[in-house]
Structure formats: structure tokens, C-alpha cells
Nucleic acid binder design. Structure first.
Length: 577
DNA sequence: GCCGTTTTCGGCCCGACTGTTTTCAGTCG
């Protein structure tokens, strides 16, 4: 039985929830939650580690006990403690924790006093007015529960990073225009560059916090105000996204920005360092007793605790503190490092702009090369190109290249990988191209073994240079197809070809974890827009964010290379003369 | 349940807001 790291994380998370409701030792609960988080951001399969008899207690936050439980779950799919807790408490009970305003104490009370075990029962009890008769619960809590349960479907909703940007930017612009604000920034998971965000956290400094918060609460896009105090307020926008705003004095801005950027795990780790010096770190600054040592900027805090500045995208407590201590922080890739783009479409297939329009726009943006990679014939729906179509486009590109000044167009194709791993165009035409990008667009539900073999075989094609959007997922819409990504990464290494990080905000494929794994294996990543219009070149920023979360440096990214170096690398990937 | 350059035992991050309370527990980030 195949057990993924995420499956084990789910078991640990459920154990933590149920122990929490039971009122168990909070530090024991934290150990399970930390372990779940660690497993979710670990690329190598722990099941494989178990099979190889590796010592799991090498993993951060895993001791003898949790190592044994991981081995147990990896072998049987469950563990004795989980089963025991499920007998003791209704297994669905922990789902009540997802209702805002309900924590472990209240869930326990609801279960013990009213035998409420499910969201349906909770809704019933709230509707019948039973909840507000319980001590500690009032009319308003009851109403809040009712609203939350009814909105349950949309409640846990997360928003793609591009949507968050669309909603957040106008709000920040509005607040800046209010003249009540000094410094202001969107913090939280948005600033760390996550693929999706649950809410937006805005941090601002202001000489008049009350007026700024009033301006915030009366923003046109606000649907309702959840809370409104003297230093913070929370609202929900019409689109359903929650926005929290925190206002501090100028001297505390850096501390607040760091605090609200998170992640929580990173903050705890940093705070422990402060604590070891007998200092205190909170959102107002770094303090020795009453004396403020730092806080006006993030770098002042890092410097005071003896660390170099850590970029927001690294702040997940995935080794950045240790790397900072050792002076081994990566110099993260940034958008100015990108010299070109190896994946773009035109009106020849499903793009919305012509070849010329795409070329001119890429040139205007300062790229020095752009690979044109329309779809291949199999995708009839989007007018995929056959040999003849590709041939015509090759001639067109030759003519256009004569005209272009600072940009070189590369001849390419996004060729479909057939179910058997063969490519969707004859070798004769593929050999004429500068860059062949292979992609899976069909048969998503093959078994893990067959899907992996299919892709490995495609990578063995002598012309294939780049594997596009390797997991095939669509964020919040479609799960990745089941593949052994580590095998694919290692195969790319052996074969000398490259993997793509597709920068479309609904793909961001590879994930940060797999970027890390690719880097570790020495496989170069190409950060591509997969542009279907000239506007889509903007998406590169999201790809850069994802790459930075994956600790990628300029040297780890294929398309940071100047054109000549790129051509050398691409011809190296090609196994035929 | 984990962890250790004060520790193998005794620690484990910190503050704001809400609601139901009359001084604070629970929740959230």
C-alpha cells in the first residue's frame, strides 16, 4: 500500500485535534502538529525511508515515539493511538474545529453537554436555540455558529495568489491615499509567496491608528466588519476574502511586519533565539526588559539576534534559520535574473495574440529570447499544429527574427505526451526545433506506475528538452496526476533534460517542495509564463515567487542563462546530432 | 512528545479582540 507523507500528516493532524478536544498536554499536541507540518513539506517519501530502514528521528521534531508511529502508519495506513482516539471520541468531532469561534474547549462542551458530533447536529442545535442556553455561550455566539455552518462550503475557501493580488492592491492603494498611513505592506502568506492565501494581513504604521482603521472598515469593497479595535480590525470583502489589518507605531513597523508575515513556525523559532538571550520578541519590537533593542525594520531584528536578513519566501522553518546561522542562505532568484521564457502560445493554437504581437511584447519587456511553443496536433480543440503547421511557423519565425532587435525567437512546440509515452509529432519535425517541451494533457487517471513510466519514456525521447507543468495540477480545481516526482527528477538528471516551473497562477507547477528536490538533485528549472496572451508575461512574477519558496538561486534556473549558454544547454539535452 | 553551548528533566511564543462576564476564558493569528 502506497502511503504518502501527506496521508501520515492527516493522521497526525487528526490525533492532535482529538487530543486537543480531550484537553491533553498542549505540548504533546503541538508535537503532533509540528510533525504533520514537517511531513507536508518533506519531498522524500518517509514510507520509502521506512522501507530502507532509515532512522526517522533524524527528521526535525521526530523522536523515538513519532518515528515508531510514522513507521506504523507507513505500514498499516493507521496507528493504534488514532484508532483508540476514534473509539473514545466521534471521529467527525474534530471537523467542528473548522467552525470559526469554536476551539477545542467549546467543541468538548458541545459534545459533552449536547451530544453534538457533526456539523449538521451543530446547525440543528443553533437553529433551535439550544446553544445559547449553555454557560459560556451567548446569543451572538449561536448566531455566529449558524452563519458559519451555513457558509461552510465557501468558508474554508482559499484564494489563488493572483486573486489575492487583485483584491489587495486596490485596498492598499486606497489606504495610502487616505493620508493616515506611514508605511504599509501586505504581510502573511501573501508576502511569503504561497500559491493560495486564506486571508490578507495588512500591516501599517500610522500616527492616527483609529482614523486609519475607520478608513479601512469603510473601504468600498468591504462587505462586513468582523472586529474593530483600537489597533486592529478584520473585515470580509464582497468576494468573501477576509482582510486583517494591524496598525502600529513607526518604531514597531519592522517587528509587526515580521510578526504578521510569519510563518508561525518561523516566528516561534526566531522568538526562541531571542528568548535564549533573555530578550522578548513581539509585534512591537525586540526587548531587553523594557528597553527596545530593535523593531523599526525587519533587518534590525535579524541583525540584533545575530542572523542575516531572511527573505519572506524562506520563512517556513524549513531550515532557513540553520542556513542563516551557517551563512548558507541562498541568494534567491529574482525577476531581473530572467533572460527569457521557454513556453508561450500564439493564435496558431490557443493563444490570443499573434506571433508578432507576442514577440514585440516580450522584446518590450526586455527579454532576450522567447520560445514559441504552440500545442501539437492531438489537441484538436485548441487547433494544435501538425507537421505542416509547425513548418509554416518555423518559416514565419525566421522572417520575424530578421526584424527583431534585442529579442530572439526560438522555435519550439508544446508537444503532447501520448498515453504510451511517445510524442505527438514525427521526429523529423521535432528535430528542426530549438526547444521541444513535452506535456501531459490526457489520461490523467493512470496508475502511479503507468503515469510515471509514461513520462519517463517521453523524457527518453532524444529531442525532448523540457517537461512542462510536471504534475498537471490546477490549483483549487484539479489534483495532480499520480506520479513519482522524485523518480522523474532523478531521471531528468540522468537524461540531462530540464523541468519546468509553469508560472501561471492556477498551475505553479512544480511545487516549492519539488523545486527544492530538483535543486538538490542538480536539475535546472525553467520558469516559464506559459503565456496565452501578452498580458500573461506578468505571470512570471508568481513563478519567481514559487521558485524562491523552493530556495532556487539564479544558477538553478535554466532561463537565467544568456542565449548562447542556453543554446549550449539545450543542445546538450538533445541526444541526436 | 521533543529537546539540550546553562538542561536527560523541565522547559516548551506572545498579544489583541470578543463575548459573556464583572475580572477573564476562549479563540485567533
Amino acid at each position: 500500500m502506497l502511503v504518502h507523507n501527506a496521508d501520515i500528516a492527516v493522521v497526525f493532524q487528526e490525533i492532535a485535534d482529538l487530543l486537543d478536544i480531550k484537553g491533553d498536554n498542549p505540548f504533546r499536541i503541538r508535537a503532533y502538529r509540528n510533525a504533520a507540518r514537517m511531513l507536508n513539506s518533506l519531498a522524500p517519501s518517509v514510507q520509502a525511508m521506512v522501507n530502507d530502514k532509515r532512522d526517522l528521528s533524524e527528521l526535525a521534531g521526530i523522536g523515538a515515539d513519532l518515528a515508531a508511529k510514522i513507521a506504523e502508519i507507513a505500514t498499516t495506513g493507521t496507528c493504534a493511538l488514532s484508532e483508540e482516539l476514534r473509539r473514545e471520541l466521534p471521529p467527525a468531532l474534530h471537523k467542528l474545529l473548522s467552525v470559526p469561534g469554536l476551539g477545542p474547549k467549546r467543541v468538548k462542551t458541545l459534545y459533552q453537554q449536547c451530544h453534538i458530533e457533526t456539523l449538521q447536529q451543530l446547525a440543528e442545535a443553533a437553529r433551535s436555540g439550544q446553544i445559547c442556553t449553555i454557560p459560556g455561550f451567548g446569543k451572538r455566539t449561536e448566531q455566529r455558529i449558524l452563519d458559519a455552518v451555513q457558509a461552510q462550503l465557501s468558508k474554508s475557501e482559499r484564494f489563488r495568489i493572483d486573486i489575492a493580488l487583485q483584491l489587495g492592491e486596490p485596498l492598499v492603494a486606497y489606504l495610502k491615499a487616505s493620508k493616515e498611513v506611514g508605511r504599509i505592506e501586505i504581510a502573511g502568506s501573501f508576502r511569503r509567496g504561497l500559491e493560495t492565501v486564506g486571508d490578507l494581513d495588512i500591516v501599517a504604521s500610522s500616527p492616527s491608528p483609529a482614523r486609519l482603521l475607520r478608513a479601512f472598515a469603510s473601504f468600498d469593497g468591504v462587505d462586513r466588519v468582523l472586529s474593530h479595535g483600537s489597533t486592529r480590525a478584520s473585515v470580509v470583502l464582497h468576494q468573501g476574502m477576509q482582510v486583517d489589518m494591524r496598525v502600529v507605531a513607526e518604531v514597531s513597523f519592522g517587528a509587526a511586519l515580521h510578526y504578521f508575515t510569519g510563518s508561525k513556525a518561523h516566528n516561534i523559532a526566531v522568538r526562541k533565539i531571542a528568548q535564549a538571550q533573555d530578550w522578548k520578541l513581539n509585534e512591537y519590537g525586540l526587548f531587553s526588559g523594557e528597553r527596545r533593542i530593535a523593531g523599526e525594520s525587519e533587518s534590525s531584528i535579524f541583525e540584533a539576534i545575530g542572523l542575516p536578513y531572511i527573505e519572506p519566501e524562506l520563512r517556513e522553518n524549513r531550515g532557513e534559520i540553520e542556513a542563516a546561522r551557517a551563512g548558507r542562505l541562498p541568494q534567491l532568484v529574482s525577476q531581473v535574473d530572467l533572460k527569457g521564457d521557454l513556453h508561450a502560445h500564439t493564435t496558431a493554437s490557443d493563444g490570443r495574440n499573434t506571433l508578432r504581437e507576442m514577440a514585440m511584447d516580450a522584446q518590450r519587456r526586455g527579454l532576450s529570447y522567447l520560445a514559441i511553443t504552440d500545442h501539437s496536433q492531438r489537441l484538436r480543440l485548441v487547433h494544435g499544429l501538425d507537421s505542416e503547421g509547425v513548418s509554416r511557423q518555423i518559416d514565419e519565425i525566421d522572417r520575424l527574427n530578421d526584424e527583431l532587435e534585442s529579442l530572439t525567437l526560438l522555435k519550439g512546440i508544446e508537444v503532447d505526451i501520448n498515453e504510451d509515452g511517445s510524442l505527438d509529432l514525427p521526429d523529423a519535425i521535432l528535430r528542426r526545433l530549438d526547444v521541444v517541451v513535452g506535456a501531459v494533457h490526457s489520461n490523467f487517471d493512470l496508475s502511479r506506475e503507468r503515469q510515471t513510466e509514461r513520462i519517463l519514456r517521453a523524457m527518453d525521447h532524444p529531442c525532448l528538452a523540457l517537461l512542462a507543468h510536471p504534475s498537471g495540477r490546477l490549483i483549487l480545481q484539479r489534483q495532480p496526476y499520480d506520479v513519482d516526482m522524485l523518480r522523474i527528477i532523478r531521471h531528468a538528471r540522468q537524461r540531462g533534460c530540464f523541468l519546468e516551473l509553469d508560472a501561471q497562477p492556477d498551475r505553479l507547477d512544480l511545487t516549492d517542495i519539488n523545486c527544492m528536490a530538483a535543486k538538490q538533485e542538480g536539475v535546472l528549472i525553467s520558469i516559464d509564463s506559459d503565456a496565452h496572451s501578452t498580458f500573461d508575461f506578468d505571470h512570471l512574477r508568481f513563478g519567481i515567487g514559487q521558485a524562491r519558496r523552493g530556495w532556487l538561486e539564479k544558477k538553478d534556473v535554466l532561463n537565467t542563462r544568456p542565449l548562447d549558454d542556453l543554446k549550449t544547454l539545450l543542445s546538450g539535452a538533445r541526444m541526436v546530432p
